[in-house]
Design a protein around this nucleic acid. Structure first.
Lengths: 224, 224
DNA sequence: ACAAAAGTGTTAAGAATACACCCATGT
DNA sequence: ACATGGGTGTATTCTTAACACTTTTGT
């Protein structure tokens, strides 16, 4: 009864975020071929037989950008888009994953596709419906950091409260009150002070903190 | 370069919830064939070429249960599961949709598959990983009703505050305080009183309310 | 001594919680 | 008159929001 079944094409795409100069940035590739030649697109590709979508995501990301998913402290399935066909063979369905990291290094000339991070509010011309996907991922990230400890994945192991606040401000796109931010965040007991200080220029050194636990956790009171 | 590409099978599954006798219930089919013959499974099926996953969901749901998606006030993509192959042809990837409705009628003998609603805490033996999927959907529904007006999709147009509270209790699986529930919910200004009453037995009639607007909305203050 | 970022507390308003009795109806 | 579910208010605690000055350092 299903013998005439001819499947849509299954693809995966990765939305990789990190903070660059206190701005939220997303990883894009420059398309070397039609369609959308010269425009920028999310790293992604076909899902091969016998591979989970998550494995396909890891493989395509490594192949096209040199990034290993092991370097991403947090990866999460985002949404499945019935995108416009990216391929003349037909209709494509793309399972997307959001990955968060810090100080991600792109091996120089990993591929001919020139992988680069772009601040989310200064995107180049983006191919397909990828601008929508990035917007969706950004909104999801905004809500994720308000009810979970997901920021840990964007910060170094030791960080200052100012760095933490700046991360929130970069993602949410608005300023937060310093005293209220610190009071609230510390009261959640997600982070603990170390006895180390971050010295950086002609001013008082900042106490370094660390997250108590890494795995994604839901907060007892949602943030902000 | 992608010429040896052989895709996984793309399927869709529907998790349809409604309230039955003040319990949250999910729609299942009895499998008539192997694998898992005699066990119960979510309605679903293959995604055909040229059809979006949402269209495939509507089609398979109508074919297997007689339900029209037009009768579901809220449908939302849930998650994409890399499920165990449901088909000897190979690896299956299932895009799932959650649908909410009320007073859904299953056309008698719509199919040989005996569609029925089961209370989520009294499920029969469920095939595949569908028990996990139902659990996932239930958790998502719990959080959805706390930060959106999604309950509207489970209630009739006019309803009493007690019906509303009972719906929350059925979904969340715990009791709520009547006075606090009413105070909070009314303060959100999502619903308005009508001038009609629900008479039902030997007690004071209950004032009927309606939602001010149907489309899914995020609440100003999250609920509960 | 100055510039620069780190650090810190209080008050007021709003929200959440806990809790018990009267009201309107049908029989 | 009684049984049944509908309806209502207050006091306490916790949370949020608004807001400005002192501290520590490097030059």
């Amino acid at each position: 009864m299903d013998s005439i079944y001819e499947p849509p094409i299954l693809t995966v795409d990765s939305i990789i975020f990190q903070l660059v100069d206190n701005e939220l940035a997303v990883l894009l590739l420059e398309r070397a071929a039609e369609p959308f030649k010269g425009m920028w697109a999310l790293p992604g590709g076909y899902n091969a037989a016998g591979e989970t979508t998550r494995e396909a995501m890891a493989r395509t990301l490594a192949t096209k950008t040199g990034l290993q998913t092991g370097d991403l402290p947090l990866i999460e399935q985002l949404y499945t888009f019935d995108t416009i066909a990216r391929d003349p063979r037909g209709h494509a369905v793309s399972v997307t994953y959001m990955g968060l990291g810090k100080d991600l290094e792109l091996p120089p000339s990993a591929t001919a596709q020139n992988p680069q991070f772009f601040p989310v509010d200064q995107l180049p011309t983006v191919a397909y419906d990828h601008a929508d996907i990035i917007g969706y991922a950004h909104r999801r990230l905004c809500s994720k950091i308000t009810y979970t400890n997901a920021v840990f994945a964007l910060l170094p192991e030791l960080f200052t409260l100012t760095q933490l606040q700046t991360a929130y401000e970069a993602i949410l796109g608005r300023q937060l009150d310093k005293r209220n931010f610190r009071k609230k965040f510390l009261s959640l007991e997600l982070i603990e002070a170390t006895d180390e200080y971050h010295r950086d220029g002609a001013h008082r050194p900042a106490l370094l903190y660390r997250f108590r636990q890494q795995p994604l956790q839901v907060l007892s009171r949602s943030f902000d």
